[in-house]
């Protein structure tokens, strides 16, 4: 096997101790490998790892681990029957709350209690009417 093939492994320290010794001996007499080592060292010192922009990292978190549940997400997670039941209760509440109570019906229809003198007039009218019915019965 051509020992030059071990060059990349040597550059990244992926050779055993014995293999490193062997390669260094080869390197002393191989101009091609010497040039490659020089090129690698020149490139490696200026290569840098770049970080994701912070706003992108925050976007990732907001879409994943810190995602807030919106009202629509809550609706989706509820079972349909439960959602319908909740809607039904809500509708019933609205209908019930808009119906007037009996106590309020008098005011609602503008009914006022009959006063004493009015009652006597009405009673007299009824008696007269009853008399007429009896007469013409």
């Amino acid at each position: 096997m051509n020992i030059c093939n071990n060059l990349p492994l040597y550059l990244y320290s992926e050779l055993s101790e014995e293999e490193v010794k062997e390669f260094k001996q080869h390197l002393a007499f191989c101009p091609a490998c010497q040039r490659a080592v020089l090129t690698f060292n020149t490139i490696a010192q200026d290569k840098e790892v770049q970080s994701l922009p912070l706003n992108v990292i925050m976007d990732i978190f907001e879409k994943t681990s810190r995602k807030k549940k919106s009202i629509w997400n809550l609706a989706k997670t509820l079972r349909l029957s439960g959602a319908l039941a909740a809607a039904g209760i809500a509708v019933g509440f609205v209908v019930f709350s808009t119906q007037p109570h009996k106590a309020d019906l008098r005011n609602y229809y503008n009914i006022s209690p009959i006063a004493g003198s009015e009652l006597e007039e009405i009673s007299a009218s009824i008696s007269e009417f009853e008399g007429l019915v009896t007469y013409y019965g």
Partner: peptide
């Protein structure tokens, strides 16, 4: 390994 060696030569 061959590809990497060729890459260094190309650079």
């Amino acid at each position: 390994l061959s590809k990497f060696s060729r890459t260094l030569k190309k650079l």
